[in-house]
Design a protein around this nucleic acid. Structure first.
Lengths: 184, 184
DNA sequence: TCCCTCATGTAAGTAGTTACATGATTTC
DNA sequence: GAAATCATGTAACTACTTACATGAGGGA
């Protein structure tokens, strides 16, 4: 997965490892980290597989290594991004796929987002079922915080759904942030 | 961290490994998994360290193993939970700590939640600074989805802050879900 | 001059998943 | 009598973090 995220950064541009890390950090950094100990070995491995090209350049006394995806690399990346969402394999990485979704043609994009929306709705229903079974009386302190965590998860799912709906309709992003749009 | 989560489940109750897994799944499961390959070795290790007691019981032909925290286990757990939040060490585990917060006396609880709120506010300011630098014109498809992910992260942080504010005031949980409470 | 950011990388360790193996009990 | 759930566990693997090591370039 991480490999594809890296490749996604260098489809159209030559970048150094350092640049790639910065990009990832700014983009999905709050949710997903790219430590140097993970990135540099990955770049080496991907180059070895022929998915990246490496161009070394001296800048003064400083060695810089520019990487870019090869045709094989681009093909592998697109195959991965185009594949239907699999809740089993992708669970933690939806956000990363969506982050990169601009690389896909519009019809595929719509389809993937639709699938994802369906999966999330299913999860929300699952939480609804649990919620109905939660006791509402005689709550201990313990229960209060346990349930609070549950509700937080619930809320997060709702936001995610609203978010997917928003970007599926390709509405302007600023409108999403305000959060004051009409409810479904 | 995982060790403390496990201990938190068996402070006041004897439970089997299976029960513990179920509890964790229901409580923070959407955010944090407890696979058997992680849990069973952990139970063994913690028992070896004297932090848990183990009582074996045959139920018909079925062997069941009941675990509970020892005094040493409870002390270790409380020390961990009482410690000030450290964004460096705890980053991914705030939610787990909050999930267990009912075990702490009220004044400490308040204090920890307050610290956490401060940290989150700082993060939000960081994102604000980034947001101001994002271009708003001539956005490519690529940018749309990249920024969308950014805004999602932003929104999630806002929700988290609202959530912390909510539980810090110990307001009823149902009110949080509706999301139609007054903004600060 | 000192510190920050740029820039590359490795070694050792921790955390966590997946897949398997086994078998009892309960429910349809 | 089949399927789901209860119940325990291991081995192999993958993913990821932390801490270290090294040094250039730019700005205060």
């Amino acid at each position: 997965m991480f490999d594809y995220l890296v490749m996604g950064m260098i489809l159209h541009e030559e970048l150094t490892g350092y640049d790639i890390r910065k990009r990832i950090e700014m983009g999905v950094g709050h949710l997903y980290k790219a430590s140097p100990g993970q990135l540099y070995p990955a770049l080496k491995k991907l180059t070895g597989k022929g998915l990246l090209t490496l161009r070394e350049q001296m800048q003064g006394k400083r060695q810089k290594k520019y990487y870019q995806a090869t045709e094989a690399g681009k093909a592998a990346f697109l195959a991965w991004l185009s594949a239907p969402y699999d809740p089993h394999a992708d669970a933690d990485h939806y956000l990363v796929k969506i982050f990169l979704l601009g690389e896909l043609p519009q019809d595929l994009r719509r389809q993937r987002l639709g699938e994802y929306e369906g999966i999330l709705r299913g999860q929300l229903q699952g939480l609804d079922a649990i919620e109905k079974q939660l006791p509402t009386e005689n709550l201990s302190d313990r229960n209060y915080y346990e349930f609070a965590s549950f509700y937080y998860g619930y809320q997060t799912l709702q936001i995610m759904l609203r978010w997917i709906g928003h970007i599926r309709a390709e509405k302007p992003l600023s409108a999403f942030l305000q959060g004051k749009e009409e409810e479904k």
